[in-house]
Nucleic acid binder design. Structure first.
Length: 589
RNA sequence: GGGGGCGUAGUGUAGUGGUCAACACGCCGGCCUGUCAAGCCGGAGAUCGCGGGUUCGAGUCCCGUCGCUCCCGCCA
């Protein structure tokens, strides 16, 4: 080894020892006859002192060293005198008196500072990701990620799970996200697809009798990106045989609680996790992944304003729509301009407008106040529990638009007003999702979760009569307004599976050609089974208090799915194209 | 596919029609034996993302384009 001990490990107990250190020069402070380095390795920083009186040679060489040089130092650990102790450094009670210095590799001046957490443009960070990863915040995040995966593996291994790898070269399927595809050289014109998730393989592992499986699985989806979406991402994928919904939830809930307690100082708001139905979550929070760190529930005014003289309300209700409101605490001071901005946002999400009412000492002030009866005004104040200084925002529209817009306002305004405690983790389960939803563009039913999700046992009949009413035996785990995982009890018999394919408008021939392996497997004794997939990147991002999952992925892609360091994707040679039997059709201008 | 924000020395920013540009950090040189975001003195460094247009004059206004980013659509 080129070093005898890690920089960050040095303590008072090492005083007097001769040590060899190796690492990067984090910072240098040159006082002439005395030069200080903060020497960094993965374990942390330690101060190294070059004293011309102790080793003129080492001191002379140290003058030429610059930040990010890789060096080796041999020296003696010394206690720092009283008054020279640095309480901000774990190794601040000691320093290393350098006797020998070797420059293992010099370094160019880095394009951005490694030794401080100043903001840097993402394009520069990503181009030099290997330098960005040297920074303390990225190192902490990746260490945390390692702790999370290590904990999960140990936890599940102790629960009798097997970690089993499934193929990366898989098969394209018609349902779901766009696939990343890989051309076959051996089979001209044919393609593999990268897994969107190992869903079918893990179900086949259940058929194969492995009973408890998990995998830290890479998944690929060729869709447009977001702060919390990358083209490739990591799931904790898990499946169990002979279980019911409650069993999977109990296991995951216990694991998440222990995980948080072992790797984080954040507090879980409520244990056991609250369970909401999809219907409750939408009605109360306008979202199927509600942030429960704060209240601000949506309040239903539909019956109150059914006969309102304010035509928008009455007409909406008459047309079968809904009128709901949101109390924003202390926001009566919002300017007209601010409310106009909110109105624009709400319109962009499909609403026709936004009604505002300000709770003032002598009642409600609003552009629509003159249309509202005393009974309506009192009812609004009572139901929203509005107090002086509060702002009430109301939307009248279809239930879907009302929930979408008020749900957005709720989370957006809560963030703006800092209503969410950043040290709290508000986990909850959302259950009883619809099995199917109507796709207006495609004019057909599509799976809310995926087509292998089982309906609630008593709801199978609904699939034939009223498909939209059938509820799924599915569950999502949500934390602080983010979906961190979703799972279900799966279909394990070919009849139900065919029934779902029929409801989705997939013909029997197509079902057999695309999913024949699954249907056939189900005929050879498939056990009842279910599981879950947790978004590992999102989970780690939440624990790291990061907004974007890019901050917890070593080499992420940009919002346009490029790797700025590798300059990927990139063209391939004509020879490669020929081998793969591919010809490029340039996009039309 | 659509919409918003951003792009000015290596990095972060200022500069919204009038000497082609300022500040901080970094970088280079000098001084300095107790600093730890070291200090002091001096210096170098920018075709203002790119292309076009408007104008007597464009970092600044307009159009296009590229890149980063956020959002909608999309994401079984």
């Amino acid at each position: 080894m080129l070093k005898s001990i890690n920089c960050g490990a040095l303590r008072l107990e090492h005083v007097g020892q001769t040590v060899t250190l190796a690492g990067w020069v984090h910072r240098r402070r040159d006082h002439g006859g005395l030069i200080f380095f903060d020497l960094r390795d993965r374990s942390g920083l330690v101060q190294v002192v070059f004293n011309a009186d102790i080793s003129a040679k080492a001191h002379a060489l140290a003058e030429s060293v610059r930040p990010e040089f890789v060096i080796q130092v041999q020296g003696v650990v010394a206690a720092r005198p009283e008054g020279l102790i640095n309480p901000n450094l774990a190794t601040g009670e000691i320093e290393v008196e350098a006797h020998q210095l070797t420059i293992l590799n010099p370094a160019k001046t880095p394009p951005f500072p490694i030794n401080e957490n100043t903001p840097v443009r993402d394009e520069v960070r990503l181009k030099y990701r290997y330098l960005d990863l040297r920074r303390a915040s990225m190192q902490q995040n990746l260490i945390l990620r390692h702790q999370v995966t290590t904990f999960i593996r140990q936890y599940l291994n102790n629960q009798d799970f097997l970690e089993i790898e499934t193929p990366i070269l898989l098969k394209s399927t018609p349902e779901g996200a766009r696939d990343y595809v890989v051309p076959s050289r051996i089979h001209p014109g044919k393609f593999y697809a990268l897994p969107q998730s190992p869903q079918q393989m893990k179900q086949l592992l259940m058929v194969a009798g492995y009973e408890r499986y998990y995998q830290i699985a890479r998944c690929f989806r060729d869709e447009d990106l977001r702060a919390d979406r990358q083209p490739e991402f990591t799931q904790l994928d898990l499946e169990m045989s002979f279980v019911e919904s409650q069993d999977v939830r109990d296991l995951i809930e216990a694991m998440l609680i222990e995980l948080v307690e072992s790797v984080s100082d954040m507090q879980i708001q409520q244990k056991p996790f609250p369970v909401l139905t999809y219907h409750e979550a939408m009605e109360r929070y306008g979202s199927d992944r509600p942030d429960l760190r704060y209240g601000m529930p949506l309040v239903d005014l539909t019956d109150l304003v059914r006969h309102s003289r304010f035509g928008v309300f009455a007409n909406t209700v008459a047309a079968g729509g809904r009128v709901k409101a949101l109390r924003v605490p202390g926001a009566a001071s919002f300017s007209r301009k601010r409310i106009d901005q909110l109105t624009d946002e709400v319109k962009a999400r499909g609403a026709k407008g936004l009604v505002w009412l300000k709770a003032e000492r002598d009642g409600l002030r609003s552009s629509i106040a003159k249309f509202l009866s005393e009974e309506e005004k009192d009812g609004i104040i009572q139901r929203t529990a509005a107090e002086e200084g509060d702002l009430i925002l109301a939307v009248a529209d279809t239930a879907a638009v009302v929930h979408e817009t008020l749900g957005w306002l709720r989370t957006h305004l809560a963030a703006e007003l800092n209503l969410a405690d950043p040290n709290t983790l508000a986990f909850c389960w959302v259950v009883d999702f619809p099995l199917l939803e109507w796709d207006e563009e495609e004019k057909r039913w599509v799976a809310v979760h995926h087509p292998f999700t089982s309906a609630k046992p008593e709801h199978w009949a609904l699939l034939e009569t009223d498909p939209g009413k059938a509820l799924a035996n599915a569950y999502d785990v949500v934390c602080n307004g983010m979906e961190v995982g979703g799972g279900s009890i799966r279909i394990h018999d070919a009849g139900h599976q065919q029934q779902v394919f029929r409801a989705l408008g997939i013909s029997e021939e197509e079902a057999w050609s695309q999913f024949g392996h699954l249907l056939e497997a189900f005929s050879y004794g498939a056990p009842p089974h279910g599981g879950i997939a947790l978004g590992l990147d999102r989970l780690v991002a939440i624990l790291a208090r990061e907004e974007s999952i890019r901050e917890v992925i070593a080499f992420p892609k940009t919002a346009s799915a490029m790797d700025l360091m590798l300059q990927s994707p990139s063209p391939i040679s004509p020879q490669q194209l020929a081998e793969l039997h591919l010809r490029i059709v340039p996009p039309e201008k």
